[in-house]
């Protein structure tokens, strides 16, 4: 009797937990989509805010977030990939390499607000970038580095030693074998890691709070040395700091929905890359 019941309980527990998680996910999505869909329109994503934010769209926030993510990618990707290649391919497995690796893993756990303060003191003040798009992008880049390094190293580690040896055995140098054989083979894993990291960075508020984001800018955004608007911060302001909070609530939900869609598109890109590679 006990033998018959046990698998049922095990199965039931797992199903219950999975169901609970899915339930909350659906509730959150439903809440945002149902309340945000009404403000979603072509005008909403193609015009700047008007009348003290109570009307108009969120175009500057969208362009701000997209540009900011681009800068983050430009800062974090080359350094992250190079660092991972060095750690996985060149560094010998001694205590100093392990220390560096452990430090990188720990950096991934540092709260994002600390990155914000660090960016403020390094980029904004010490390097005289001012509160600007570049300063915020660099700060988000720093935040993204540990994730990109870790996922890239993981992708490189999955390439078997025999693939590297194949290139070496026909006279490739170590660098050539990495550039021409190992990296292309690891590319889907690396790209997936980068895209997922960027989609997380795109939704961050704390690191850009002190380094460049603004609630409202009059001129169209785009200047790298200027302050800018961004979706997560815009959402935060609309939902907690606005003087007519009830009036702008639909706009806040609309902003949340747009942010979700941006992140979802990035995730879709990662999914597509993986799918395309699995067919090879």
């Amino acid at each position: 009797m006990k033998k018959k019941l046990a698998p049922f309980i095990e199965w039931g527990t797992l199903l219950f937990c999975t169901g609970t998680v899915c339930f909350f996910l659906v509730v959150i999505l439903w809440d945002i989509v149902s309340k945000g869909a009404s403000s979603l329109s072509w005008g909403f994503v193609s015009t700047p805010p008007a009348n003290g934010m109570t009307q108009g769209g969120i175009l500057p926030a969208i362009t701000g977030t997209v540009l900011l993510t681009l800068i983050t990618a430009l800062v974090a990707t080359p350094f992250g990939i190079s660092c991972a290649i060095y750690l996985n391919e060149y560094a010998s497995d001694n205590w100093s390499a392990r220390l560096v690796r452990a430090a990188i893993r720990n950096l991934a756990g540092v709260p994002s607000v600390i990155y914000g303060l660090f960016g403020l003191s390094l980029f904004v003040q010490a390097m005289h970038m001012g509160t600007s798009m570049v300063a915020a992008g660099c700060t988000l880049g720093l935040l993204s580095l540990p994730y990109i390094i870790t996922t890239t190293e993981e992708a490189l580690r999955r390439i078997p030693a025999s693939t590297r040896e194949a290139a070496l055995a026909i006279g490739a140098t170590q660098f050539e074998s990495i550039r021409d054989v190992v990296l292309p083979a690891a590319l889907p894993g690396i790209l997936t890691g980068i895209v997922l990291t960027l989609s997380r960075a795109a939704g961050e508020t704390a690191p850009i709070l002190f380094t460049g984001v603004a609630f409202y800018i009059n001129s169209p955004s785009g200047g790298l040395n200027q302050e800018f608007m961004a979706l997560p911060y815009h959402l935060y302001m609309l939902s907690t700091q606005h003087q007519a909070i009830e009036q702008v609530r639909p706009l806040a939900y609309g902003t949340a929905l747009v942010l979700l869609i941006v992140v979802f598109l990035l995730n879709l890109a990662a999914f597509y890359i993986r799918y395309k590679h699995s067919k090879k």
């Binding site: 025999s162 693939t163 194949a166 290139a167 026909i170 490739a172 292309p184």
Partner: peptide
Amino acid sequence: RKRIGMVFQKPNPFPKSIYENITYGLKIN
């Protein structure tokens, strides 16, 4: 290594086309 070639235990072609598998060695040499 160009003068002493090697064939491994497990087949390890490059994740490239058949043609490129041959030409890669020619290119780097």
